[in-house]
Design a binder for these strands. Structure first.
Length: 889
DNA sequence: GCCTGGTATCC
DNA sequence: GTGGATACCAGGCC
């Protein structure tokens, strides 16, 4: 990483990766119209394009084995002798791959009598000596020996797109030996794919142990007589084999190469040649992925992140002495097997300290632990909640979270996707962070550990976080969101972390009963559906097949049009049922229902962790309006409307050591916010009076006394009221209510004649947003909506509906977040053991400890009520029970 | 094996 | 031709 200024050399083992691609993609799905198989070409090219795009190498080569033998098969004719004959569909794809390489202007290299690996080894050495960063891509484990501080191996885990990064640390973690010692280990263990048998009874663990004890294979062989045990005996009986293995698995680093390193410089692809080759191979989507690599279409490559000096010696003491605002980075992971293995800290942008948590003394442990737990030391992280979990798993408390550059970046522009550190650095600083694992969750274990020291990477990242904070936090302030950031989102991080950590207890037995029932119901409905078709077993889960059955075979009337034909969604099927009743439709709907349910239940059952609880992950940086999101599993879309939904919610129970679940939800929060923001006197009055809102509105709209509002009137105004906040049109309202458009329009007119300020508000909020470029919630959260000035009608209409909705949905999100902070503070201040476990947009769920139920109910009511000072009261409904369903009533 | 679209659930 | 999400499945990729 430090040598990146000299460039990056990408070296690919052509055949080994082509083979992986061949077996990863079904050959029958990939062929030209003339029957030429292309799955390996497709997979290999996709992989290479991704590597070129992500790593932006300055130099590239793809090495090939040539047909016929090598010096190894001369030495040992049986070498690689167990390999099955290559499938006939593979062979013809190799020249095609070379054609693609030609179009990409990537040099293909080979050498008679040698393997591709020897070429990789030689070029890796040359690149290393030239001070380059080298990436070797190979599915051959022998290449592990090439790994060092500057040479990383990308090894396919499955397919060709999921590549594991083998750095020296990663090799040590997986195999227990240094990369240079891997051939020693392989010589002892053997390599089936090369037809090299190992020492019977010696596996990687024993081999690694011996290598540790005797310092390597040579030492082992010299002391073979002293090696104890049955394994030692076995070793002595196979010395020759081991020597031979070691001889053969050594890769040559000193070949004479026909193409000098300098000629591997990558000039970018040839657009015309890409078109030609994609035409010939009938690649459609790939063309679009390859064309950006063409030089003609090229743009300046991003700047590489500046080198950061990361010190590791004495890091604990140095970090513990930091008292100002410190940027922190935790290398670790969340989830069931959460752990942290390295820590980086920076209080200057170009210098940082890194700590490998594996080699801490007990004193270091407690020094660092105390520093982390000190709430007075302000820490800024990128994705602080992840760090919190990783450190918590290691038994440390993280306090003093004062900033989160991920959240800052979100507030600055919440509509963007991708808030990983790499992406944010790129977006806001134009910096390319090298060796970043593809954006994802926490980094995987194998990606951990920098090239030289586990703390290296963490330190570098901490320094980057510090730079980022210096840029993003002022932007947050400039946009008037300083308070929202520091007083709402940042303190909320810890609340959410605790909620995730607590999780929700689940009644597994109940869940599995439900799963069985739903599965049985789905199966029965499926059989009914097949019967209705005269026994044909179409795939009921395939919209494509359903379209064929419904609209062609059964000749049913067409439903609403979608991209791929005609819709088969539930509402369309219900419509069809009325127009053209058929037992198939009934059975299909029943099957949809039951299979969806069974799938939900199954997912939940699988999500139960060993502690008997489900731990979701909340995100503050997904929903552009400021709502939280929940995933893995999503606990914010558990069914609730139906009887079956109720039974699922019964599976969420109070956990051991606790007494009850209490739920509290805001009553009609969005309508109240609309009343507040619009200042509509009639609407404010309705809420102030505490009447049934829809009855009140109905009486005004229809001009009858409240007690004379019929259920139908009530449901019509209810749909209208809710639709308003979403930008509902008269057309949409008509559809939803099953009215003629004219009637729906008349209803809207009547509505607005009584609640005119609402209409004025909705208009003004869009106008304001168009003028300012953004919308704003009651608490100053912004959402930028550039499409409001789009000349494209459809985009503009969508933007207008977003502008209409964002302040309402966003203010509701702000309110409940404020309430959550209040609830958390009260629980702590009052020394209660009860805890928040779930938020579902307008609802909070608390698990209460014995004797605390009344106190908790009061806290919920008071804090949710006091979360905002609106011109209408914030009403809260509270329920209690041993499970979520009971509590929710 | 990855990506997209359709369908489903929630507020 | 109502906003904001997440999850699963099938099918296309050629």
């Amino acid at each position: 990483m430090s040598e990146s200024t000299k460039g990056t050399l990408l070296l690919v083992d052509g055949l080994s990766m082509a083979f992986r691609a061949f077996f990863g993609l079904p050959v029958e799905n990939f062929a030209t119209s003339t029957g030429v198989p292309t799955n390996a070409v497709y997979g290999f090219t996709t992989m290479l394009a991704t590597l070129l795009r992500e790593h932006e190498p300055t130099h590239v080569a793809v090495a090939f084995d040539l047909p016929g033998g090598t010096f190894r098969t001369e030495r040992l004719p049986s070498y690689k002798g167990t390999r099955d004959a290559t499938p006939p569909e593979f062979e013809p794809q190799v020249p095609l791959i070379r054609e693609v390489l030609g179009a990409l202007r990537v040099p293909a290299v080979d050498k008679p009598n040698y393997e591709a690996d020897d070429l990789l080894a030689t070029y890796a050495r040359l690149g290393h000596e030239a001070g380059m960063r080298v990436l070797v891509v190979s599915g051959d484990r022998d290449t592990i020996q090439l790994v060092n501080g500057d040479v990383t191996l990308l090894y396919p885990r499955k397919g060709v797109s999921d590549l594991v990064r083998f750095t020296p640390d990663a090799v040590r973690e997986k195999y227990g030996v240094d990369p240079g010692q891997y051939p020693d280990l392989a010589a002892l263990v053997g390599e089936t794919s090369d037809n090299l048998p190992g020492v019977p009874g010696v596996g990687p663990k024993t081999a690694a142990k011996w290598i540790g004890v005797y310092g390597g294979l040579e030492g082992i062989l010299n002391s073979a007589d002293d090696v104890p045990g049955k394994a030692g005996e076995s070793l002595r009986a196979h010395l020759e084999q081991v020597r031979l293995n070691r001889e053969l698995n050594h890769l040559l680093t000193d070949l004479e190469v026909a193409v000098p390193l300098a000629d591997l410089e990558y000039p970018g692809a040839d657009a015309a040649a890409i078109h030609e080759v994609c035409d010939a191979l009938q690649f459609r989507t790939l063309r679009d992925k390859l064309l950006p690599l063409a030089t003609d279409a090229g743009e300046a490559s991003p700047e590489t992140a500046p080198p950061v000096v990361v010190q590791t010696a004495g890091a604990v003491a140095a970090i513990a002495a930091m008292t100002g605002t410190v940027a922190l980075h935790v290398d670790g992971r969340g989830g069931v097997d959460a752990d942290a293995w390295a820590l980086g800290a920076a209080d200057a942008a170009d210098a940082a300290w890194g700590v490998d948590l594996a080699d801490l003394s007990p004193e270091d442990e407690s020094t660092l632990g105390a520093w982390l737990a000190d709430p007075n030391i302000a820490k800024v992280l990128h994705g602080a909640k992840d760090g919190w979990h990783a450190l918590t798993a290691r038994g440390w408390e993280l306090a003093g979270i004062a900033g989160d550059t991920q959240i800052a970046a979100f507030l600055v522009n919440p509509d963007q996707r991708g808030f990983e550190l790499e992406q944010i650095l790129q977006r806001h600083l134009g910096l390319a962070l090298e060796s970043g694992p593809t954006a994802g969750e926490l980094d995987l274990g194998l990606d951990g550990g920098g090239a030289h020291h586990a703390g290296q990477r963490a330190g570098e990242r901490a320094a980057h976080v510090r730079t980022l904070a210096g840029v993003l936090e002022p932007m947050v302030d400039e946009r008037g969101m300083g308070a929202l950031y520091r007083e709402l989102e940042i303190p909320l991080i810890t609340v959410l972390a605790r909620m995730e950590h607590a999780g929700m207890a689940v009644d597994r037995a109940h869940l599995s009963t439900l799963a069985d029932e739903a599965r049985a119901r789905a199966d029965r409905a499926a059989e009914d559906a097949y019967d209705a078709l005269g026994g044909e077993r179409v795939n009921l889960g395939s919209p494509k097949q359903l379209q064929e059955v419904l609209f062609e075979r059964l000749g049913m009337p067409k439903t609403k049009k979608i991209k791929t034909g005609y819709s088969t969604d539930a509402s369309s099927l219900h419509d069809l049922s009325e127009k053209a009743p058929h037992p198939f439709l009934t059975a299909l709907l029943a099957h949809r229902d039951a299979s969806k349910l069974s799938q939900i239940i199954e997912t939940l059952a699988q999500a139960v962790q060993p502690d008997g609880r489900i731990h979701t992950t909340f995100s503050q940086v997904v929903a552009a309006t400021g709502r939280l999101s929940s995933k893995d599993p999503n606990l914010q879309n558990i069914p609730v409307r139906t009887a079956e939904g109720h039974r699922i919610r019964e599976a969420f129970v109070v956990g051991e050591g606790f007494d009850t679940l209490v739920t509290a939800d805001y009553s009609q929060i969005e309508m109240r916010i609309m009343a507040h923001l619009s200042g509509d006197a009639a609407l404010v009055e309705a809420f102030a009076a505490g009447e049934d809102l829809h009855r009140f509105v109905g009486s005004r709209v229809f001009g009858v006394a409240p007690e004379d509002v019929s259920p139908e009137m009530r449901s019509q105004v209810k749909a209208m009221s809710y639709g308003l906040a979403y930008g509902l049109s008269s057309f949409g309202l008509a559809r939803q209510l099953g009215l003629p458009v004219g009637a729906a329009q008349a209803l809207m007119d009547d509505y607005f004649s009584r609640f005119g300020a609402v209409r004025d508000y909705l208009r003004s909020v869009v106008e304001q947003a168009r003028a300012d470029g953004y919308t704003e919630t009651i608490f100053g959260r912004r959402r930028y909506i550039p499409d409001l000035t789009s000349t494209n009608r459809q985009r503009r209409d969508i933007a207008e509906r977003m502008a209409l909705n964002a302040p309402i949905q966003g203010s509701a999100a702000d309110l409940i977040k404020r309430a959550m902070l209040g609830v958390e503070r009260r629980l702590r201040d009052e020394g209660l053991a009860s805890r928040q476990v779930l938020q579902v947009h307008d609802e909070l769920v608390i698990e209460t400890a014995a004797g605390e139920q009344d106190a908790v109910e009061n806290i919920l009511r008071e804090e949710m009520h006091a979360a905002g000072d609106l011109s209408v009261p914030l009403e809260v409904n509270v329920g209690t029970g041993a499970d979520w369903r009971t509590a929710g009533h």
